[in-house]
Design a protein around this nucleic acid. Sequence first.
RNA 1: GGGAACGUCGUCUAGUUUGGCUAUGAUGCUAGUCUGGGGGGCUAGAGGUCGGAGGUUCGAAUCCUCCCGUUCCCA
Length: 480
Amino acid sequence: MGKEIGVTVKKSEDFSEWYTQTVIKSELADYAPVKGLIVLRPDGYSIWESLKSSLDKKFAATGHRNGFLPTLIPESLLTKEKDHFAGFNPEVFWVTKSGDGELGDRLALRPTSETLAYTLFAKWIRSWRDLPLKINFWNTALRAEIKATKPFLRTSEFLWQEGHTVHVNSEEAEKEVTDILELYKKTVEEELAIPVITGKKSEKEKFVGAVYTFTMEALMPDGKALQMGTSHFLGQNFSKPFELKYADKDNVESYAWQTSWGVSWRLIGGMIMIHGDDRGLVLPPRVAPIQVIIIPIYYSDEDKEKIGKISKEIEEKLKDAEIRVQVDNREQLTPGFKFNEWEMKGIPLRIEIGPKDLEKNQVTFARRHNRQKDDQEITGLVERVVSELDKIHNDMFSDAKKILQERTSEVDTYDEFKTELEKGRLIKAPICNNPECEEGIKEETSADVRVITSDAEDTSSKCIKCSDQSSMRPLFARGY
RNA sequence: GGGAACGUCGUCUAGUUUGGCUAUGAUGCUAGUCUGGGGGGCUAGAGGUCGGAGGUUCGAAUCCUCCCGUUCCCA
């Protein structure tokens, strides 16, 4: 009876289907009429806004300012840095017409903004006094996805932010790259309760055009790793073709040093996969559009009035404490229906208020992440809600962290590697410097080097592929 | 990159094999009523031209062609 309102498959049995149903049924997003595009509904957009505001505060505190760039980039600009363009070329959408007329120079819908931004930066920067330049853009990027798309994880247009900075020297730029990575890690852990592993990308997996790329990776329940954010050291790879030069204190012209970095709504996809369960979404409290849902329960008109009043009072008090709270006053629905609906939508804390509770001057708390219920005195309720939400966040984070640790393996042979990979593990394994070994492993197992952690150096082991002396012990996994 | 499945009221769906009456049922929606501590009951009502375009035919949701979109599985 009406069970199909909820998610109809188990997370552990059909992960892909579970994910799609959870996204659509919880009303975070819906499909757009064009292939590969999704629409963010208010609950989904609200989560994005929370992330945005948290990041904006941190960006501002570290001296970054926001700007806005147009969506269209002329072909001549996009192709200026050859490797960079080659990396994006197959995914670029082109605009070739305006009305009935053909355009002379066709225009790309930006797959990323480096070339456009750096053309402008070159105009704006004259002297060392103009540096550092630290700008961030909240926008969308468009990349034609040929492969099967998935809401939030792979779509042809996605929301993201891209930061671009310009510095006088390499040291300052490289510090920016690691500072941003740390800022991202903090945001993901503190807002989304997702534990990540940070480090470098391999030469093979780095951003096209970058000198090197830092990444943070999270492990999903199906054993695949999800890249949650990247921070690139661009060196002078772009400043040279874009003539991004400045006069230093001795009035000598030098090419500037650059970084770029970004996170996208993929973070929301990661959050859904990591925390969700068979009943649907489980939202981390700090980004939940509604943190507390109050369900009034009553039998008689008299109770209805009393309970309505107290629900309203509690709502007001929680609002004063800046908690995102809502009373579910819908009269046509039974409490049981509401419980299930809000659980599917992942609301972290539910407060039930009924006649039995009122008699004892208490309410019932029901937590989404572990489904525990207990009674709470009405006196001092606001403080307890605040601490409960923090506790829920901490529980969710430590649970996720425990799982990540349990699912990280260390191996020394290719056989063990393959066995662990089939178990859906993140695997630490020694590899040599020869790029063919990394390539070969990817071809044979479809696992790649996800991240080279700062402690990954290892010259005393044997490469799992060729048995030569190893150079490092990075983390491998299959990726999204 | 390869393979498979699918598209019919808001949602899930019957009907397609073998073309033929007013396109089936449930759920949701609206109104009323009784209810209400884990997806309520009853009564009445509204809601679809069958993903789109073309074609075959006296007649197409059903057959053919193309297009659009979605899902799942394997590199």
